[in-house]
């Protein structure tokens, strides 16, 4: 009787010890695994392959909490700007025919340097840096001057 009681206690003890170790180690190991976005401050975002991005077109990227518009000019040059219109909070678009950045809400227009050229926008769009690394487009935050 004594031996079986001892064994019983030992089994329970050992089993729950293993369970506890498991439920401690699992969170720790999961914690050590780098999350999908490996960094806190998004300083750059991959915008896909250059070859998939046709000339005279644009796309909207998610840059942390900020939407960014990436434009490929006729010359093939890439430019990126914060996509929120400086007037109210609409998202701007690239006009392929006019070669301008356009906000449909109140007819605001910016040139391809992000400069506000007509309509109500009071300020230029903030420009982002674009680099192409091994055919991959990388948009990054403008370096503080």
């Amino acid at each position: 009787m004594g031996i079986s009681r001892k064994k019983f206690i030992d089994y329970i003890l050992g089993g729950s010890l293993l369970g506890w170790l498991g439920s401690t180690l699992y969170p720790v190991l999961a914690y050590l695994k780098p999350p999908k976005v490996p960094e806190v401050n998004v300083n750059s975002v991959n915008a896909g392959m250059l070859t998939d991005f046709s000339i005279n077109s644009s796309k909207i990227l998610k840059f942390g909490r900020i939407p960014v518009i990436l434009i490929r000019k006729d010359s093939g040059e890439l430019r990126a700007f914060e996509a929120t219109c400086t007037h109210l909070d609409c998202i701007v678009q690239y006009k392929r025919d006019e070669k301008q950045i356009y906000c449909a809400c109140h007819n605001g227009r910016y040139d391809l340097h992000g400069l506000n050229i007509s309509g109500p926008p009071p300020r230029p769009l903030v420009q982002f840096d674009v680099n192409v690394i091994r055919d991959e487009i990388v948009v990054s935050k403008p370096k503080p001057v």
Partner: peptide, 18 residues
Amino acid sequence: SAYESVRFLMTKVNFGWL
């Protein structure tokens, strides 16, 4: 980065909040 990294830890890292 301090606040942002803690926020990141809380939201993106597995069990970071724990």
